[in-house]
């Protein structure tokens, strides 16, 4: 799924775009959690074309993405990040989209449009 379609599908707003070509890039899967160890346990399924969907809006969601080589985060429930944490994200070349949808609704819409989970 192309990132600009992901943004439109979840009525999202770009919070931080470090990759100027991001909106045209294709992402192939998503994983959703508020628990970072759950995300870290997905290491063997993680790819650079996987999106992390989370309601955890703090520096640890950024560090988790960094360890897993994830480049795109979707923050749900209208979460944003303060400037100092956005600066950390910028240093790590991360891209962040925020949506007012709940995790369930955001995932449901993305799945319906073809962005599958890591096990299909």
């Amino acid at each position: 799924m192309i990132v600009k379609d992901i943004v439109s599908c979840i009525e999202g707003e770009p919070l931080l775009i470090c990759d100027p070509d991001l909106l045209e890039k294709e992402y192939t899967s998503a994983f959703a959690t508020d628990l970072m160890s759950d995300a870290l346990a997905m290491i063997h399924n993680s790819t650079e074309t996987m999106v992390l969907v989370t309601g955890l809006a703090n520096v640890q969601s950024l560090r988790t993405a960094e360890m897993l080589d994830i480049k795109l985060l979707i923050l749900v429930r209208g979460k944003t990040l303060p400037d100092d944490i956005l600066e950390v994200a910028r240093e790590k070349d991360l891209n962040i989209i925020t949506t007012g949808l709940t995790m369930y609704s955001a995932c449901g819409r993305l799945y319906k449009e073809g962005l599958c989970g890591i096990y299909g």
Partner: peptide, 16 residues
């Protein structure tokens, strides 16, 4: 609250 405590830490460390 910081996103930890899933209980996956040590098992995951050993696995990888």
């Amino acid at each position: 609250d910081m996103g930890f405590g899933a209980g996956m830490g040590l098992p995951n460390i050993k696995r990888v």
